[in-house]
């Protein structure tokens, strides 16, 4: 399978604080990879490096894709910026109506009931649905999702998982998810990466999560690494 992104011995720090240390992994085209790890493990830093927002201090990141979209965990909406849900989509994904997934995505976010509402009046779940929709409707080659189901209710989460499958089959996108939700990891991922400043384990969901939950490799690796 073709590698779309590869991290080779990537390290990154903020000041003197080393956030990630010699991280290596590849993302194959058309696969779903989930990154898990405790708070402060460096997950957001990996996302920033992946997106090209920051450059690593050491190591190499190679990308064979330019069409990247990103759905942050939450957007802090400036109350001084008037914007309806519809105009939000028009700004972030101007060609949203031509996307092959347009109907599915608009239905997922209940677009018709929220399109004329101001974003700052939407609920947390509606706002997260809107942010996810805007990222998907850019028809990206690489889709990066940070905690995509955190604010969604049970129905919303189920619809989102169905949508993930459609994104992969219709667009062939490579999907990278940061998540604490083990259901996402088990049901929807091809590859799981466990991060705790370095990659503790990686592989198929069953193999990796059981190993992670076991607590032996995931946390003891970090402990060994620090000492």
């Amino acid at each position: 399978m073709k590698h779309q992104i590869s991290f080779n011995n990537v390290s990154h720090s903020y000041g003197k604080h080393l956030v990630i240390d010699q991280v290596s992994f590849t993302l194959d085209a058309g696969t779903i990879t989930t990154l898990i790890g405790p708070n402060g493990a460096g997950k957001t830093t990996i996302a920033k490096l992946l997106l090209g927002i920051e450059n690593p201090i050491y190591g190499e990141i190679s990308r064979s894709t330019t069409r990247i979209s990103y759905a942050p965990q939450q957007i802090s909406i400036n109350h001084d910026l008037p914007m309806t849900a519809k105009s939000f989509l028009e700004y972030i994904a101007p060609e949203y109506s031509t996307s092959p997934l347009s109907m599915d995505v608009l239905e997922f976010m209940h677009f018709h009931s929220i399109q004329d509402k101001q974003i700052n009046t939407l609920s947390g779940g509606q706002r997260q649905g809107l942010v996810l929709a805007s990222a998907i409707l850019q028809s990206p080659e690489l889709l990066v999702l940070d905690e995509p189901t955190q604010a969604l209710d049970i129905n919303g989460q189920q619809e989102f998982y169905k949508l993930l499958d459609k994104i992969r089959s219709s667009l062939g996108s490579t999907i990278f998810i940061i998540s604490h939700d083990l259901f996402t990891v088990m049901q929807n991922s091809d590859q799981v990466l466990c991060l705790n400043n370095h990659i503790c384990c990686k592989g198929t969901p069953t193999h990796t999560v059981i190993k992670g939950i076991d607590g032996v490799s995931f946390y003891s690796h970090h402990h060994d690494h620090k000492h």
């Binding site: 997106l51 090209g52 979209s69 990103y70 942050p72 400036n78 910026l81 939000f88 700004y91």
Partner: peptide, 10 residues
């Protein structure tokens, strides 16, 4: 950029 600088950067 006003909505989210990281989205604008990407």
């Amino acid at each position: 950029m006003s909505i989210d600088p990281s989205i604008a950067k990407i």
